[in-house]
Design a protein around this nucleic acid. Structure first.
Ligand SMILES: [Zn+2]
Ligand SMILES: [Zn+2]
Ligand SMILES: [Zn+2]
Ligand SMILES: [Zn+2]
Lengths: 133, 133
DNA sequence: CTCTAAAACGTTATATTATTACATACTGTT
DNA sequence: AACAGTATGTAATAATATAACGTTTTAGAG
């Protein structure tokens, strides 16, 4: 018996916005998204932000905090949606989701000196990509 | 002969804003800073943002990206100002700069599969602090 | 000291990112 | 049908950040 996954059925707005982000080759900002979905009837910021919040919550997308931009999760059925690692080129701003099991495990196990146990982390690496080097 | 350090002499606005952040027990947002330094003659956002940019650049403060807030660096003469790690309580929002040499070294050495070499990173851990647990 | 270039400053306006508030509609369950 | 929970639509506004421009101060070179 294979393990069952509860389907995450997206609502109309969530689906529209996820599709846009998912097919984009670069992170999208909220107002870029808004502009691009107005023809589909999504006219106001709260509609976009609500969908984004939900999509982040269920791990379909991630927010690149240093850019205020959103990317689709590339780890399908992502088990590390609350443990994200990105590489960001400081020149061309290309962004990749790093999926390195060792690194993720290392960070997931990390405890600080105050005995604080972490549930979630976000790591953003900056450098120059192959092209820009 | 002790190693010489180039003094980072702060300008007037930089010093005012650094003092405020440095004595604060919590991360400060730009407009909170603005409000608090108006009596000292700093009246407009660009003055605050310029000082913040510079202070970040020289490593005296760090930006907590997920909060759009700024904290003073607690690692005096911080050698890892471009390699920051924070722990953030999701409940009370208390923030600490984690200084764990092993972790910093591990991350500084990390190379991704694309052969991208990183110059800088920012890691934010989220969880519940002792009090809030 | 004088000249110069870079850095810092002051100010106004504006751009960008995100939320509040409230009314309405849809979804699945009892 | 009644209910609770989720999602939607809309207007207004809050919060965060930058552009643009002219002036002043600072730090070094000659
Ligand atoms: Zn992911
Ligand atoms: Zn690049
Ligand atoms: Zn530091
Ligand atoms: Zn706490």
């Amino acid at each position: 018996m294979t393990k069952m996954h509860k389907e995450n059925i997206l609502s109309k707005n969530q689906q529209i916005i996820f599709n846009l982000i998912n097919k984009s080759s670069e992170p999208l900002k909220a107002y870029t998204i808004l502009f691009n979905v107005q023809k589909k009837g999504i006219k106001a910021p709260p509609q976009v932000y609500r969908a984004l919040d939900k999509l982040v919550e269920i791990g379909k997308i991630h927010k690149i905090e240093s850019k205020n931009a959103f990317v689709a999760c590339k780890n399908s059925n992502c088990e590390i949606s609350k443990a994200t690692v990105f590489s960001i080129c400081e020149n061309c701003e290309i962004i990749d989701e790093v999926s390195d099991v060792k690194l993720s495990k290392y960070l997931s196990k990390f405890n600080d000196k105050n005995g604080m146990k972490f549930k979630r982390f976000n790591l953003e690496f900056f450098g120059l990509c192959k092209k820009c080097k």
